[in-house]
C-alpha cells in the first residue's frame, strides 16, 4: 500500500530531467519534493500522473502500474495555474468534476460546499477572469480535490498566496490528510516543509540527493550544531580554539558552532563550565532542512544565490 517510483529516468533532448529516481511514498503521508528550479520536481509529478511517460522505470500505486490506475485516483494542482477565463466558476468546476466521473448533481453540491468552506460562495456565478489571482488559486485547488482523489499532487501550492490564504490552504491540506489522503507537494519554502511534511526527498539535477522521513533526513547529515550563550561574553572567542569546532553564526541571542563528526558536542559544555562561564543557553540542535538543503545541493545553490560579478567597463 504505497506509491512507488522505481528507477525512473526521463530525458528531454539534451536535458536529463530525471536520472533513475526511486522513492516510496506511504499512504496518508504528507510528502515534500524539495529542489532548486529545474531539479525535476514537476517532471517527476507529471510522470506519476501518467501525463508524461518515463524513458525507463515504473510508477505503481498499491501495486498497480500508474497507467492502469483510474484517473480519478489522482488530484493535481499544476504549477502553471490556469482556468477557462470566460467560463463561470461553478460551470467549470462542475465540468472538471464530471470529467473525473462525478455525477452532475453531486458535482454541483460539492462545488458549492467547497466554495462555502473557502468563504467565496458568491464567486460561483462569476467568470474566472474576474477573480483575483489568489482566489483563482483557491478555485484551482477545489478543482483538484472535487472528485475526492486518494492521492493529491500539488506543484508549488503556496507560491503567490498571501499569509492568510496560505493558512487557509494549509488547513485544507490537513483536512485532506485527516480524510486519509496521500499528499505530495513540491516547494522550495523550507518552513512549510518543516511544518507539514512527514517525509521528503531533495532532488538535484534529476537525482534524489536524500530522501526519507524528515527525522532520517536530519540524521543523515553528518553535521552537529551547538548553540551556546554565556553571560558577559557575547563573542565566546575561545570556542574557535577547540579542536573540530567552527563558529558558523554569531548572534545577540546565541552563538552557533558546527562540531565535526567524531567530536562529542558535550565537550563544548564541559569546556564552558571548566572556564567558569555562567551559561544562559546550551543546545545541541539538529540542522534545519534549509541547512541540509544547502549542504546537499550547496554548490549549485550558492552560485544561483549570488549575482555573477559585474562586467568591467573600460
Amino acid at each position: 500500500m504505497s506509491l512507488i517510483i522505481d528507477s525512473v529516468s526521463k530525458r528531454f533532448g539534451e536535458v536529463q530531467a530525471l536520472e533513475g529516481i526511486s522513492l516510496e511514498i506511504k499512504p496518508c503521508e504528507v510528502f515534500g519534493f524539495l529542489g532548486a528550479n529545474g531539479a525535476g520536481k514537476t517532471t517527476a509529478m507529471r510522470i506519476v500522473l501518467d501525463i508524461l511517460r518515463p524513458d525507463s522505470g515504473t510508477v505503481t500505486w498499491n501495486g498497480t502500474l500508474n497507467s492502469k490506475v483510474p484517473r480519478e485516483t489522482w488530484g493535481y494542482l499544476p504549477e502553471e495555474r490556469g482556468l477557462y477565463a470566460k467560463m463561470n466558476v461553478l460551470e467549470q468546476l462542475v465540468f472538471f468534476a464530471r470529467l473525473h466521473g462525478v455525477g452532475a448533481k453531486a458535482a454541483e453540491r460539492e462545488v458549492r460546499d467547497w466554495l462555502e468552506r473557502f468563504r467565496i460562495p458568491e464567486y460561483a456565478d462569476r467568470r474566472a477572469e474576474q477573480l483575483s489571482k489568489g482566489n483563482q488559486q483557491k478555485i484551482q485547488f477545489i478543482a483538484a480535490i472535487l472528485h475526492d482523489p486518494e492521492v493529491l499532487l500539488m506543484d508549488e501550492p503556496f507560491t503567490g498566496l498571501d499569509p492568510i490564504n496560505a493558512a487557509l490552504l494549509k488547513e485544507a491540506f490537513l483536512e485532506m490528510k485527516e480524510r486519509g489522503k496521500t499528499l505530495i507537494f513540491s516547494t522550495h519554502q523550507m518552513e512549510t516543509v518543516e511544518e507539514l511534511c512527514e517525509s521528503i526527498a531533495i532532488l538535484d539535477r534529476g537525482r534524489v540527493v536524500v530522501g526519507g522521513s524528515v527525522r532520517e533526513v536530519r540524521r543523515s547529515s553528518g553535521r552537529q550544531v551547538v548553540r551556546l550563550a554565556v553571560e558577559g561574553d557575547p563573542e565566546i572567542a575561545w570556542l574557535a580554539t577547540l579542536d573540530g569546532v567552527v563558529i558558523t553564526r554569531r548572534g545577540q541571542d546565541y552563538t552557533e558552532a558546527e562540531v565535526s563528526r567524531g567530536v562529542d558536542p558535550v565537550v563544548v559544555l564541559q569546556t564552558a563550565l571548566g572556564r567558569g562561564c555562567k551559561i544562559h543557553h546550551f543546545e545541541i540542535a539538529e540542522p534545519s532542512l534549509e541547512e541540509i538543503f544547502i549542504e546537499k545541493v550547496g554548490q549549485i545553490d550558492m552560485t544561483e544565490r549570488t549575482l555573477a560579478p559585474k562586467a568591467l567597463r573600460a
Binding site: L49, I51, R71, W74, G75, Y76, P78, E80, R81, G82, L83, Y84, A85, F96, L99, H100, Q140, A143, A144
Partner: peptide, 15 residues
C-alpha cells in the same frame, strides 16, 4: 487557448 491559459495541465490529468 487551453495552452496559453495553462488550463491544459488540469485537463491532462482529467482526460
Amino acid at each position: 487557448e487551453e495552452k496559453s491559459s495553462r488550463v491544459m495541465e488540469l485537463m491532462l490529468n482529467a482526460t
